[in-house]
Design a protein around this nucleic acid. Sequence first.
DNA 1: TCTGGGGTCCTAGGACCC
DNA 2: TCTGGGGTCCTAGGACCC
Length: 397
Amino acid sequence: MEKKYRIIFHIDLNAFFASCEMAEDAKLLKIPLGIGGRRERGVLTTANYVARKFGVKSGMNSIEAKRLCPKLLILPVNFDLYHKYSKIFFDLLSEYSDSIEKGSIDEGYLDMTDLSDEVHPLDIAKEIQERLYKEHKLPVSIGIAPNLFLAKMASDMKKPLGITVLRKRDVEEKLWPLPIEDMYGIGKKTYPNLKLIGINTIGELVNYQNIKKLKLVLGNRTEEFVAKGRGIDNKIVDPHRHVESKSIGTSSTYSTDIHEYQDVLAKLVLLTKNVVNRLIDDDSIIKTISIQVRYNDFSQINRSKTLDFYTDNFYEIYQVVEQLYDDNQGDLPIRLLGVSLANIKDNINNFRQIDIFSVSKEKSKEERVLNMLNNINEAYGSSIIEKGVKKRKNPKK
DNA sequence: TCTGGGGTCCTAGGACCC
DNA sequence: TCTGGGGTCCTAGGACCC
C-alpha cells in the first residue's frame, strides 16, 4: 500500500562537542563547560547546558564567556574524540534504517517511511533517544515530519532531549510564528534585508504579496524558500551525499597580527604540512590548492590554483601555496592564514610521468623548504613537523 | 568583548573547445 | 569577415551551517 506521506526523522546531537567531553568524564556533568579557543582571540564552538544558563553560547568570545560565568571550564576542541562519538551515533542509527543521510558530524536524517504499520514512529524515536542517552550518554533532539526541511525545523523546537512531531497541518500554527532568522537557510546577511521589506516571521514570508521585491532579497532561491515555508520540500534522504569530503583545509587566527614576509611563509609551511598530513592519512590526492588571507581590517582574499595533475606531495603543494601568496601580497597586517585542498580523489592508480631532467632542480627547492621546516622546528620546538614524516598507509583495495 | 575553524553550495565571468 | 551558442572547467567571492 502506498503511503500518502513520507516519515522523515532529523536527529540532532545536543551541544555535541561538550556532550562528548561529558560522556568521557562524568566529573564534567555538573560544571559549566565550553569548548573552543582559550587565547585572546578564541571563541566557543559550543557550551553545555549548565553554562548556557549563564548566557554563555556558541560563537561567543571566550573572554566574554568567562566574564558571564567565571567558573566556566574551557576545553580545547578534540576532533578525534568527536569523530569517535559521531561513529557511535551513526552506527546506532543504521540499526533503524538503511536510508540515512549525514547532515554533518552531529546530525542525520533517516527515512522511516517503510516502517511497519504495527510500530508508531514516535515510539521508535523515543527508543533511539533513550538508547543514545543510556548506552552512550549522548543527548539528542528528534524531529519527525513528512520531509527533510520540516524534520530539521522540528528537531530544533525542543532542546535538549526533545521529540517534536511537525505534520503538514501543523505548519501554520507551529512554523509560521517563528522569527524569519530561525528558518534553516536564512542567515545573518539575509534576514536584515527581509526585515527591511517587512518580513519578520516565516508566515510573513509565505504570504508576502510583492514577489518582485522578494526576489531582490532572495534571488533564485525565492520559490524554494516560499515552498519550504509552506511545508513543502521534495528533497530525498540521500545516503551518498556528503560521504566523501570535497575539500580538506586548515586555518589559523594568530594572537597577534603578522607583519613580516618570512613569518607568513613560516606559518604557511606549517598549515600546508598539516593539511598534507591529513590528505596522506586519507590516502587521497588533490589537484586544487587554495590559500585564504584575512587582514587585520577583516577584509579577506581567497586564491586558488588547479594543477593539471593530481598530487599528495608536500613540496609540490607548498610551492603552489607560496606562489599564490607571492602573487597576491597585500599591505595590511595579517590576522588569519588558511590553506585548503580540493578536487580530491582516492589515491589509486595515480601513475604520473616524472620528468627526470627536472629532478635535480626540484631537489634544491625541496632542500629550501626542508630548511624552513627545520628552522621552524628549532624556533617552536614543535612536534607537528616530525609527525608529518609518517609513512603512507597501505593503499585502499 | 571585537568577531574560530571545519566545511558545503551557489553564482558569475572568462577561457576554451566544438 | 567580425562573429553564434552550448558545454565544461577554472577562479573568486559570498552566504550559510555546525
